[in-house]
Design a protein around this nucleic acid. Structure first.
Length: 201
DNA sequence: ACGCTGATGAAG
DNA sequence: TTCATCAGCGTT
């Protein structure tokens, strides 16, 4: 396995979102290694994409998206859940890929413990990481990991996995962006592994 | 179908 | 300083 470099992320966001499918998301925490295969992503692309937080301008929250590619953008939604995004493109062009679902590969019991802390009951493997908030719970990703350099190979990084062929990649509109302009709601900027049971509901 | 929950940023 | 808004989840 090879760690993905900054060059990988410093490309058009749709390309990065597509090619992240099949890659391994690796989290090292409390001496354990948690690994999941990315099966669902969404692209948020620049100042003209009204679904992208950065379209409102540069704020303390969105600042990291304006910087170099290969950093995390982690924020809280609905007061309780964290979202993990990876910055893309060039400095000054704000964009990122949201990781929406992963297929757990290693450290599943540790993921279950972390999910159980908030969920209060045992979570089966399918429901462990099949959503952007769920996977952050399972991997212990919170705002402490915001603006984290993901190409340094510490705490959180990405590795090449088994590529997913074009025939097995599906695309469609992004989830939960009803506030965005109609054309942005319609844009097919969500990518997922067709038929994979770990894709979000 | 609904309630939970608090960070965020814009308005005042 | 209030206020509306929200890239979701879990239970009903």
């Amino acid at each position: 396995m090879t760690i993905l470099t900054r060059d990988f992320f410093a490309r058009p966001t749709l390309t990065v979102a597509r090619e992240l499918l099949g890659c391994h998301l690796v989290r090292e925490v409390d001496g354990q290694r948690l690994v999941g295969r990315i099966v669902e992503t969404e692209a948020y692309i620049g100042p003209d994409d009204t679904a992208c937080h950065a379209s409102k301008g540069r704020t303390p929250r969105t600042e990291v998206m304006f910087g170099p590619a290969g950093y995390t953008y982690v924020y809280v939604i609905y007061g309780m859940y964290h979202m993990l995004n990876l910055t893309t493109e060039q400095v000054g062009f704000p964009a990122a890929v949201l990781i929406r679902a992963i297929e757990p590969l290693a450290g599943i019991e540790a993921m279950q413990v972390r999910r159980q802390k908030t969920n209060h009951s045992l979570v089966n493997a399918v429901n462990l990481t099949n959503g952007p908030g769920k996977l952050c719970q399972a991997l212990g990703v919170d705002k402490g990991l915001n603006k984290w350099d993901i190409v340094a190979g510490q705490k959180l990084w990405l590795e090449t996995g088994n590529n997913i062929s074009n025939a097995d990649v599906a695309t469609g509109p992004r989830i939960g962006i009803g506030y965005a302009a109609p054309q942005d709601q319609m844009a097919p900027w969500r990518f997922w592994a067709r038929g994979n049971r770990f894709v979000s509901k």
